[in-house]
Design a binder for these strands. Structure first.
Length: 925
DNA sequence: GTAGGGTTAG
């Protein structure tokens, strides 16, 4: 099977298929989901071109985008590919058809094909939905009767609700200054946004003006002289993103032909800057990239801008896609390209990958600059490696790069974050001295970092010294450093305004409001908002977001929605955080319909329903006792998005808590249908879910299933299972699990060992206890420690029982105490759990012992385990037989890989010989 | 004003 990479042009794929008529093809065309529909389109195209006998598969999309996005994207991308393809296939190079006619024909064909394509995903979707419906009906048939438990939950709900109401109402009844959020802040924000009509009118006028300009522009013939004059043909200066978009759309094809790559890049740059205020610019940027790809070759700036877009959208997969595709197109990444990649990777905390990119840069001779090193030093925050930061700083100096204030701040930050005492913080102060000597003035955040670190150490006096130092250095405080020294909310605002004579920024105001709300000083928050509005500052997304979130936390969705609607009038676009908060609010209230209305609105305004939000929604729905809630929610999510594997697994985790095997199975079927691989993590979710719901036999059922599928458990899973079975009545099952530690070569930790040994004591199985101690000895453990721990606990237990018996006839309340004590201490396990902290500390110094045990265990798993087979119980024996020794497995895997490589090499050779096209062929796997 | 960095948050 061939796997075609996404970077190949549609034509190349066609050629390839023509030359390899009998091959199965795995069409791995584009990794993002709007391209998923292109795959659908291409499949259809292939069928149109009589290649139906070729089996073309699409891959699953790693990114979930709404179908709305797909719909929009479909038009621009497919048109260009089809144009190219039609030009070559239908008309060749000699062009027998007069140009006007040709264009019309192409347009006709495209139009036809486009409408085919547009319909296709939806038709397919409909069919799928029907299947879903059936499955979901089946699933909901299996719902556990939730009402018994539900009643209890409702009561808890009631109590909480009452508490919240109390919390909100109390101040008013008492007439205290601290108020609920309601009237005060809320009303101000609402008042602020009255009168939407004048704004609308104003906008209409702007629209008209732009429209007129455009008409003028289009009518104007393009002056020929300007073409090569280097003067830009498209004017983006002093224009809003919206204006540029309208301008761009109005340009004729002929005019666009005259545009150079620089012009397109400029437009992309404008759109990028507009992305934070309106996510619709994401689609617009993709459209521009399509046009560039159609008309010419993008350059590194084009892709850098696209990657910067991905950086903003926090979409690393998308970014990697651009990074790969630009190299496929033989466009060389530059410093900026790498800086963007490194920034993104450091932000997700993968320091080693970031350093690998740095090495890559050095190998390729790509210059590093200040920004590169800032991010690399920043990566050391995550690895807690101050030395590495220092050495990177030295590397930087060696390369002749002059440090600036941000580099110093980062260095100081790395040092401060890892300092636990004044001595460790000293290098940070040295950096401050060094920068001052080099004539670089520290800024507020420089002091801020130090103050924060000192406060965390409990060094308040020193923190205040730094704050005073800042004032002496002529540096003005901001909301953050004031918070550092303990000033927040309204107090902080007044201090800033009256003592320091500083006009707070919009961010300062937002911080103050946030602080006040956090401290439940709602009247203060309202006052801050009043001052803010009075001073002519407009509330922005953050202001709204802070207050909406406060409402949601107070369980007041209607107030939150009022503000949401107010934002619309205020013409501020809600971001994914706001939507997410509101949707969660509705799910908490079990109002699924409203939640999904909001999701619809969210998608319509081009805010992506990201996996983070999807998973939050699922988690919130999970918390309801009523299992149908999460089923309903997930069902509807499936209809409109493409939830990731983790989302499925979260649902499985919750569903498994009901202990219903068929329900779990149905979700597994569903998961498979959505092309998600069912692997260890999937079973981990199911098994831990079963354990949480105390459905132990179901948990073991899935565990067995997992092993049947030749999936290997890890320590955490085995340990979890072992712990749930740590009761005398489950002792047999527990010993099977204990054996599995050895079969799978997983080293039990001290807690695991104690759990098993304690159960042996509880059921008085000396034989088993001895066996386990022998095994441990084989592994190189010092078994005396465990024996001592066991004996200590046993003694206590006996003592307590004795006491209890002796005191039986004394004072009544004392005996009640004893009975309660006994209840808590039934079983040695509980007793040990209470004390285990001590014992774990006692074992801490045994690192070498544990390392040796690991090695021994591996040997044991490979050889001894099988030799000792006779001693094992039957189900364990079966398991051992299923599992080859590790080294055998490695050998087999290597052999398989080699075979596949050989096959691929042969296939590749023939492919290149037959088709003289630039196609890379990868083996599957 | 073609693209990239630190301190804070929902």
């Amino acid at each position: 099977m061939y796997k075609l990479k996404y970077s190949y042009k549609f034509n190349s794929i066609f050629h390839f298929i023509k030359t390899k008529p009998t091959r199965k093809i795995h069409l791995n065309y584009f990794p993002t989901s709007h391209y998923h529909h292109q795959c659908v389109g291409i499949k259809k195209q292939l069928r149109n071109f009589n290649h139906s006998r070729h089996f073309v598969n699409t891959i699953k999309c790693p990114i979930s985008l709404s179908r709305y996005n797909c719909y929009n994207r479909l038009q621009s991308t497919i048109v260009h590919q089809q144009l190219k393809q039609l030009e070559q296939l239908n008309y060749g190079n000699d062009d027998p058809i007069p140009s006007g006619e040709k264009e019309n024909k192409i347009e006709e064909v495209i139009h036809q094909q486009l409408s085919d394509h547009v319909d296709d995903p939806f038709q397919k979707r409909e069919k799928e939905n029907k299947i879903d419906e059936v499955i979901h009906q089946q699933l909901s048939d299996h719902v556990d009767d939730p009402f018994q438990k539900g009643e209890k939950e409702n009561k808890i709900d009631e109590v909480i609700h009452q508490q919240l109401l109390d919390h909100v109402d109390d101040p008013i009844q008492k007439g205290e200054k601290e108020n609920k959020i309601e009237e005060a802040i809320h009303q101000q924000l609402l008042d602020h946004v009255d009168d939407p009509i004048p704004k609308g009118e104003k906008e209409n006028k702007i629209d008209e003006a732009i429209h007129q300009q455009l008409l003028d522009h289009v009518d104007d013939p393009i002056p020929k002289g300007e073409e090569k004059g280097g003067k830009s043909l498209i004017d983006v200066e002093n224009k809003t993103g919206e204006e540029v978009w309208i301008h761009y759309k109005s340009l004729s094809n002929k005019f666009k032909d005259k545009l150079q790559i620089k012009d397109f890049n400029k437009v992309l740059g404008v759109f990028l800057r507009n992305l934070p205020t309106d996510p619709v610019f994401h689609d617009r940027m993709l459209t521009i990239l399509d046009e560039v790809n159609y008309r010419m070759k993008p350059d590194e700036s084009t892709y850098n801008t696209m990657m910067s877009m991905s950086l903003q959208r926090k979409n690393l997969e998308e970014m990697k896609y651009y990074f790969d595709i630009m190299q496929d197109q033989k466009i060389k990444p530059n410093t900026i390209t790498y800086n963007i990649m490194i920034t993104a990777i450091v932000r997700i905390g993968k320091a080693t990958q970031a350093f690998a990119l740095y090495d890559d840069m050095r190998k390729k001779g790509i210059e590093r600059n200040q920004k590169t090193f800032t991010m690399l030093i920043q990566a050391c925050v995550k690895t807690r490696d101050v030395k590495q930061a220092k050495s990177l700083y030295n590397d930087m100096l060696k390369e002749g790069i002059i440090p600036d204030v941000i580099i110093y701040n980062t260095l100081i930050n790395v040092t401060a974050r890892n300092a636990t005492n004044l001595k460790e913080l000293e290098p940070a102060f040295n950096y401050v001295e060094e920068m001052k000597q080099k004539g670089i003035t520290p800024i507020t955040s420089t002091y801020s970092i130090l103050v924060k670190s000192l406060i965390e150490m409990g060094k308040r006096t020193e923190a205040l010294q730094i704050f005073n130092q800042m004032e002496k250095d002529g540096c003005k405080p901001d909301a953050l450093i004031l918070e550092g020294i303990g000033l927040t909310g309204l107090k902080s605002l007044i201090k800033m305004r009256d003592t320091y004579n500083i006009t707070p920024s919009n961010e300062d105001y937002n911080t103050f409001i946030n602080q006040a709300i956090r401290e439940s000083k709602f009247n203060d928050a309202a006052e801050i908002l009043r001052i803010m509005l009075q001073n002519g500052y407009q509330p922005d997304v953050s202001t709204y977001s802070i207050i909406i979130n406060a409402h949601i936390k107070n369980n007041d969705i209607s107030k939150a929605m009022q503000l949401y609607n107010a934002m619309k009038i205020d013409n501020i676009k809600s971001d994914s955080y706001i939507f997410s908060a509101l949707i969660i609010g509705y799910v908490m209230k079990k109002d699924i319909d409203q939640a999904f209305n909001l999701i619809d609105e969210m998608l319509n305004s081009h805010v992506e329903l990201n996996n983070r939000t999807i998973n939050r929604i699922i988690d919130t729905a999970s918390e309801h006792q009523d299992i149908t809630i999460i089923q309903k929610v997930f069902d509807r999510l499936l209809r409109m998005t493409n939830p990731d594997k983790v989302a499925f697994e979260r649902v499985l985790w919750r569903v498994a808590q009901t202990g219903q095997l068929t329900m779990v199975e149905n979700y597994l079927i569903l998961m498979e249908k959505y092309n998600h691989k069912i692997d260890f993590d999937t079973f981990k979710s199911i098994i831990t879910g079963s354990c949480k719901g105390i459905h132990l036999s179901e948990g073991l059922y899935w565990y067995q299933k997992m092993i049947d599928l030749k999936l290997r458990p890890n320590h955490l899973l085995l340990s979890t299972l072992l712990r749930c079975h740590a009761e005398p009545k489950y002792s047999n099952k527990m010993f099977v699990l204990w054996n599995d530690f050895h079969y799978f070569g997983i080293l039990p930790d001290d807690e695991d060992i104690m759990f098993v040994l304690l159960i042996c004591r509880e059921i008085s199985s000396w034989q088993m206890e001895n066996r386990i101690l022998r095994q441990l000895k084989d592994l190189g453990y010092n078994t005396d420690t465990y024996k001592t721990a066991l004996d200590a606990i046993d003694l206590q237990k006996i003592n307590e029982e004795d006491n209890n018996n002796n005191n039986n006839n004394t004072k009544k309340d004392e005996s009640i105490q004893k009975i309660q004590g006994l209840k808590l201490n039934t079983g040695a396990i509980e007793l040990w759990i209470k004390q285990r902290k001590k014992s774990i500390n006692a074992y801490k110094k045994r690192e070498i012992e544990i390392r040796n045990a690991k090695e021994n265990l591996q040997k044991w798993a490979n050889k001894v385990g099988i030799r000792n087979e006779a001693k094992l119980d039957t189900s364990a024996k079966k398991r051992v037989n299923q599992w080859l020794p590790y080294s055998e497995m490695v050998k087999l895997r290597k052999k398989k890989e080699e075979e596949e490589e050989a096959e691929a090499a042969a296939a590749s050779a023939t492919a290149t010989a037959q088709a003289n096209i630039n196609l890379n062929i990868n083996t599957n796997n």
